[in-house]
């Protein structure tokens, strides 16, 4: 039973990791590519970390929670790096996919560099 739960969690994690990288590989345009890895990878690694936590808790007989530190750290840092990368792309003027709809008022600024 314990092995089945563990296997399912590991496979889900690996699958979402793969989906993130597939998104990185095949989506057109930088802004769309940003969606693949930063999302799916976070859930993928999160599930693998839960599996690891369960495994070591059962194996050693004492609660193993330090995996959640990595999960916590990734959940805090992943949005920050995604935000910074898309901000860089906006300011450099990275090319968008042609069919991108744009609902930004043009009154804002070129000087929000901070």
């Amino acid at each position: 039973m314990f092995e089945i739960v563990l296997s399912v969690l590991i496979l889900i994690g690996a699958f979402f990791t793969l989906v993130g990288s597939i998104g990185l590989y095949k989506l057109p345009g930088f802004y769309m590519r940003l969606h693949g890895p930063t999302k799916a990878t976070t859930l993928g690694v999160g599930t693998i970390l839960i599996a690891s936590s369960i495994y070591f808790t059962v194996k050693t007989g004492s609660l193993s929670l330090h995996e959640f530190l990595i999960a916590l750290f990734l959940f805090i840092t992943a949005p920050v790096s995604a935000h910074l990368m898309s901000k860089v792309a906006l300011h450099i003027g990275t090319k968008r996919v042609d069919r991108t709809q744009d609902y930004i008022d043009k009154k804002d600024d070129k000087d929000s560099l901070d």
Binding site: A14, R33, L34, P37, T41, I48, L49, A78, M85
Partner: peptide
């Protein structure tokens, strides 16, 4: 910037493989 994103994904993948 695409390469930065790829590096970002690469390190997260390496975390996954290390935990496994």
């Amino acid at each position: 910037i695409d390469r930065v994103l790829a590096l970002d994904t690469l390190y997260i993948n390496s975390i996954a493989i290390l935990i496994l």
